[in-house]
Design a protein around this nucleic acid. Sequence first.
DNA 1: CCCTCTATTGAACATAGTTCAGTGATACGG
DNA 2: CCGTATCACTGAACTATGTTCAATAGAGGG
Lengths: 199, 199
Amino acid sequence: MAGKVAERRAALRENLILIAERIIAQQGLGALRARDLASEAGCAVGAIYNVFGDLTDLVLTVNARTFHRLGADVAEALADAPQDPVEQLVIMAQAYHRFAAENHLAWRALFDVERAPGEAAPDWYLEEMGRLFTYIADPLAVIFPGRAPDEHALLTRALFSSVHGIVLLGLDQASSGVPTEDIDRMIALVLRQFTASAK
Amino acid sequence: MAGKVAERRAALRENLILIAERIIAQQGLGALRARDLASEAGCAVGAIYNVFGDLTDLVLTVNARTFHRLGADVAEALADAPQDPVEQLVIMAQAYHRFAAENHLAWRALFDVERAPGEAAPDWYLEEMGRLFTYIADPLAVIFPGRAPDEHALLTRALFSSVHGIVLLGLDQASSGVPTEDIDRMIALVLRQFTASAK
DNA sequence: CCCTCTATTGAACATAGTTCAGTGATACGG
DNA sequence: CCGTATCACTGAACTATGTTCAATAGAGGG
């Protein structure tokens, strides 16, 4: 029987990812424990290290999936959006907000995982980020037709970062009173005001 | 001899804060270790817990000082700024950026410390944040005289969050190529564009 | 069916934060 | 100035964590 080992390893890998995904989503990145994983997956702790280099590798794998779902949600929102480029920006940003709110702990894990210093971001991260940037850059090109390409790149990154900051601080202090609607209002306020005097 | 104990405790407290401040600034929050602290301070590990409830308390104390320095830097930048309210916003935001860049690890520690879930932010945090918000709200009131007060609050928070997001993502991926000047350009771009069509 | 090779195991190790019984210094009454 | 009750300080021990690796079990070829 060829590949029985590889088969079992692949199954374990998938299983570990699903378990880790659930723990992160329900209890956050900080609640992920090697022994819990092994116990739930019905394997030894050491087995985890046969499949992933370390727990960070596993988290990065979960993050890749989370980021992909995030990208898909934003793309779907864009597909349903009207033609107006400003509205497209607002709707995508609010889709970003909704995803972050509905998958708060998983979304936090995207940024809370500590990369070894000096290590570059993984490829999937840059790719997925690039896709998001494209979604933003296209409407921006319509809104600001006269600007140089490098300025477009800067604009894109700046707007993404702004929306990210609004969502991040808004959700962080949810306890100290930033209602969901206010976050959406801030997003719309910034994007509309920003694009109001386009030229 | 009255208060010899209290005196020593106060001295140890101050000493621990200074050591922790240096470790966080030079090596980051993750490099803070109880045993290293005790060793450097010349006391037993247990002594730390006579002065601080736990290491998080100590980190929060360091963070309070960091946040205070940040506020002072922004205030100083504002004091030296011209009368034009848009310029004031840009200069303050770039002062925020400069502080974050020059005190990167200490600044990260402000947000990376994990609060127990459901626990409110400490008072000093809310106070210092309130001060920063005031700095922003004043020029905004000049730029957007016609808006309702609650909309001013939202605008203030939105702009702060936007700048924070730009700085956060800009510094995070310093390795993947966001030069300092670009961060300043993004800040100026967002703030100028945002205020360009004020009404 | 046996033998080799390797995937898997889980006890052990390294490194954390935190605790607490034992120890010694402090402050005060005489 | 001395004795003693008190309490702060000590640091070994406890708990919890990620990670490793010698021992084991099982797969696959002959």
